[in-house]
Design a protein around this nucleic acid. Structure first.
Length: 257
DNA sequence: ATGTCACTTCACAAGTGA
């Protein structure tokens, strides 16, 4: 079973990129982030025609998350992170697919820091941590996949000082991600590639793609029950290089049956 | 501060978010 996460940066603007990648990569489950589309603007018909059932939570202009399942309808379990009813940003969706609970999440970027946006980022991560603990307590096999907007370690970014003040690399951001892992989640890409340089995002500016000046922001976390089924993983970097690409590449794992 | 996109609106230019 192949499970992928892809920050699409506008699902309609990049529909051809998405459909081409689905046809080539053939993932069984896809977590999408940054749909930048309302619920009614979601390209349901095209995605169905490609062979995928879907659940989604859109939003005008920003955010928006979805879960796609090949030849199957995901069973929606949640469309928001519990804990802050006043939060209207569409950043979390959760569904059951083929006996696995899948979450597609898009954590706040948090820039500029310090400031209210950084505060929101840290508060959101705290709510994620609380909910993730609930998910672990169910004993179900769970995958938390998405754009965490955290560079976990210094080696997960190209050598530079230009991000020193960025919310993505702050100690508080890293601590939030670390606390989540310490609950008992496995960073699947790092498990498969313990030493390699892993990037999933390259800013559009300053030729960062051409220079391979990337960051690792997109992560697939597995509950303990799933860790022994982990079989392989990858980053589809070519997808970042096509015309009209997202600024993120798809990230995937495979699980043994 | 910059750069590159996409998308919004007191809408064809300027802002905002990333």
């Amino acid at each position: 079973m192949k499970i992928a996460t892809f920050n699409i940066n506008g699902v309609n603007r990049r529909l051809e990129v998405l459909l081409d990648w689905l046809a080539t990569a053939e993932p069984d489950v896809v977590c999408l982030q940054e749909l930048k589309a309302t619920d009614s603007q979601f390209p349901k018909t095209a995605i169905e025609a490609a062979g995928y059932g879907a659940v989604w939570r859109g939003q005008a202009a920003w955010n928006g998350v979805a879960i796609l399942a090949r030849d199957s309808e995901p069973i929606l379990t949640r469309a928001e992170l519990p804990g802050d009813p006043a939060d209207t940003q569409s950043r979390y969706i959760e569904a059951a697919v083929n006996g696995i609970l899948i979450a597609s999440l898009y954590a706040p970027n948090g820039n500029p820091q310090p400031g209210p946006k950084f505060g929101y980022k840290l508060a959101w991560h705290e709510l994620l941590r609380l909910h993730a603990a609930e998910l672990l307590a169910t004993g179900l096999p769970v995958v938390l996949a998405g754009d965490y907007n955290v560079v976990p370690e210094p080696r997960d970014i190209y050598p530079t000082r230009s991000y020193d003040d960025n919310a993505l690399v702050q100690p508080e951001s890293r601590a939030a991600f670390r606390r989540l892992l310490d609950q008992g989640w496995l960073d699947a890409l790092r498990k498969i590639y313990p030493e390699e340089q892993l990037f999933t995002f390259w800013d559009y500016r300053r030729n960062r793609w051409q220079r391979d000046a990337g960051l690792r922001l997109d992560h697939v976390l597995l509950s303990r029950k799933l860790t022994r089924r982990l079989n392989g993983a990858g980053i589809d970097r070519d997808v970042r290089g096509v015309d009209g690409a997202s600024d993120h590449a798809p990230v995937w794992i495979t699980l043994r049956d």
